[in-house]
Amino acid sequence: MPTQVTARPLTASDRELLRTATLANVNWTGEQRFTARDVDERPDLRHYTVFRPGRGDLGFVAERQGLVVGVVWALLLGAEDPGYGFVADGVPELGLCVWSGYRGQGIGGRLLRQALAEARRRGVRQVSLSVEAGNPSVRLYRAAGFAPVPGAAAGTMAVDL
C-alpha cells in the first residue's frame, strides 16, 4: 500500500462496509441505478454484503489514518445462490471497491494483488469476477491476468492462480 495506507483483514462484522462498497460498485457510472434498499432487499445484491470466513471467504480493508479507503473481498457463492461472476462451485467471486477520491493511487491494484496472493496461499485455483462493459476497472483486472470466461455471462472474467 502507499505509505499512509495500511491493510487489515476483512471480518464478518464489516457488513456495513460491504454494503457501501456493493452500492458503489453497482452505481460505478455515477448514476444512481440502485439504492441502498436494493442492496438490502435484492438477493442478487445482498449476498455480496455477507462475509463468511467459515465458508472460505477472504478479504482486506485498506485504511488511511483510520478511515476506510477501499476493500477487496472474494466470496464462495455456490450454484444455489450465484453471483454475477459465477463460474463454478469452489471458485470465489471477487469484489473490489476504492472510494472516490482515493482512486488512481495504486490502492486497488495492491488490494487485488493481496487478495490473489491470499487465495493462492489457501490453495484456490481460480478467482472470478463480473465487470460491466465500459467500467474502467477492467484494465486493472486484465493487467492482473483476468480474462473473459467463454460461455459465461457477459462481463464474467477469471484468473487462474
Rank of each mutant, 00 (worst) to 15 (best):
G109K: 11
R46K: 14
R8D: 13
T156W: 10
V124T: 13
T35G: 03
F60V: 08
P2E: 12
I107G: 05
G54Q: 14
Q65H: 14
L75H: 14
G123A: 08
R113I: 04
V159Q: 13
L75Y: 07
E16P: 02
P148S: 13
R52W: 04
V149R: 00
V61D: 04
A79F: 04
T3H: 14
A133N: 04
F51E: 01
R121D: 11
V61F: 07
V72W: 00
R42Y: 09
D38C: 06
A115T: 12
V26E: 06
A74S: 12
R121W: 06
Q4T: 15
W99A: 12
R19F: 11
S128I: 05
D44Q: 14
A117Q: 12
T20S: 14
R121C: 02
R15Y: 10
G70L: 09
G145F: 09
E80A: 15
V98G: 00
R142I: 03
L94C: 02
S13L: 13
D81V: 06
L58T: 09
G30W: 10
V39Q: 03
T3G: 10
T22H: 05
A147E: 15
N27C: 11
L76M: 08
V50G: 02
V149P: 01
D14A: 06
V127K: 00
D89Q: 03
P9R: 15
F60C: 01
L94W: 00
L111S: 06
V87T: 04
V39K: 06
Y102S: 13
H47R: 15
A74Y: 01
R52M: 10
V68P: 07
Q65S: 15
I107V: 15
A133S: 11
D14Y: 07
D81C: 04
E93S: 05
A88F: 01
C97L: 00
T3Y: 14
S128E: 05
F146M: 03
R122T: 05
I107R: 07
A24Y: 06
L67V: 11
G108N: 08
E118M: 08
A74R: 01
G151E: 09
D81W: 09
D89A: 04
G145D: 07
N25F: 01
G54S: 13
D160R: 15
Y48F: 14
Q114C: 03
S137T: 09
N135F: 03
Y84M: 10
D89K: 06
T11M: 12
L111H: 08
V69Y: 08
G123R: 05
R125L: 12
A143W: 07
V124P: 02
